[in-house]
């Protein structure tokens, strides 16, 4: 049972990968990429957790706490990934404008 948090991270990643592979819509594909990213956040936080301790906010005094480094990496990544997804969606809009479809298979067949 103590393997469950790591299994969750693996499960989310594989589920997102299945979504990317079987997607028929570029916007749906971008959201499945975000699901894959959330799997990495879950893994990072599960590594930093320590039993019986609480958050690394030391008000009013110091106490045993979980690892702050993985939290620092994760929280900047969550906000920055929004703009990266916006860039991917802008590319999808450009492809839609050129070929008239958001289906990756139809765009792949489009020439000209």
């Amino acid at each position: 049972m103590s393997f469950l948090p790591y299994a969750l991270a693996g499960w989310i990643f594989v589920v997102g990968l299945y979504g990317v592979v079987s997607s028929r819509n570029l916007i749906h594909l971008a959201l499945c990429l975000t699901v894959m990213q959330s799997g990495t956040y879950v893994l990072l936080l599960a590594i930093g957790y320590r039993n019986g301790t609480t958050a690394p906010i030391f008000r009013p005094s110091r106490h045993p706490a979980v690892d702050p480094v993985v939290q620092a990496l994760t929280l900047t990544d969550i906000v920055v990934s929004v703009t990266v997804i916006a860039l991917i969606l802008a590319l999808a809009l450009g492809a839609h404008k050129e070929s008239g479809s958001v289906n990756p298979e139809e765009i792949a067949d489009f020439t000209g």
Binding site: Y41, L45, A46, G48, Y49, T53, T54, A55, I57, A65, V66, Q71, A72, T74, L75, I78, V79
Partner: peptide
């Protein structure tokens, strides 16, 4: 997972 900053961000 005792991560309030990350929860606020999400």
């Amino acid at each position: 997972y005792q991560a309030p900053d990350v929860a606020l961000s999400m």
